[in-house]
Amino acid sequence: MNPFNLFFQFADSFAFIVLSAVGLAVIFGMMGVINLGHGEFIMIGAYGTTLVANAGAPLVAAMIVGVIVTAVFGFLVERTIVSGAAINWVAERTLGRSVIEPLYDRLLDSMVATWAIGLILTQGVRIVFGNSIPQLNTPLGSIQYGGFSYSVYRLVLSLVAVCVLVGLYAVFTHTKFGVRARATIQDPETARSLGVNTDEMYTTTFVIGSALAGLTGALYAPSLTVVPSMGTSFLVEAFVAVVVGGPSVLFGTTLSGGLLGAINALFTNLYGTFFGQIAMLLTAILVIRLLSNGLTGLVETVRDRKVGE
């Protein structure tokens, strides 16, 4: 087993898990909404990027457009469906009452609603853009080492994944928005009484989560096949990573990306891709069973014990 191969595969797997999960993790951790349409949000980012790049724009510009398109889409979904604000606004003026209860913290209903959004998106994109669109090439070529080579772009992705995590950490700990957002999660009532506009916090969080999903789609557009049903290939890794990570979303996603990425790379290298997948899923089952608060829960327990000594 070549150690470079193993390392590159780990980096690749880590990036895929983290980037798949991070948008979902932000929305779930901050709002208690499980976005089963998460994969389709990623698909929108990928479509935006590919279509704009095909129209002749440089790849990075196309990616930025992909992210913006997904963020705007997320904003619309939040306003009309998740919070119901737009529909209620209309309803209050026509029927004289609001018709939609917000999906915040209605975990299970939010799953069904976003699942339905996913269905509509997949088929809607198929109707509008057809079964396939011209695909992009992977840029940046490859690096050679020994008899092997690895795509530089795939390696860049793992750096981007790390940057995204660091950036989010900075946003949520060192900005005014971050402090307010965390206050809203911990105690919405108190946050409101202290003058935080919690509605706005929810909307912003959802838009950030959507933009992150869009970023994932944009980044993978040149490396994966962009088709209407591509969202499902992210969904499993995303959910597993979020749940394995536990309540502290960013830290948790990092840890589970590390653990699951390592397991996946190791078993894939030793026994092939099938065992890599199965090992990853079984690890997830074991972690959920043994650590009721996920990996971050374990870390906190260990830290508390150390402090207590």
């Binding site: 469906i81 119901g84 529909i87 018709v99 939609i100 209860e101 209903d109 069904v112 609603a113 699942w115 339905a116 959004i117 996913g118 269905l119 509509i120 997949t122 088929q123 809607g124 198929r126 109707i127």
Partner: peptide, 16 residues
């Protein structure tokens, strides 16, 4: 081809 879209929209409406 709109069959799946209709199903999704209906579900969404009921949940909301």
């Amino acid at each position: 081809q709109y069959a799946i879209v209709v199903v999704g929209a209906l579900l969404l409406a009921v949940v909301l």
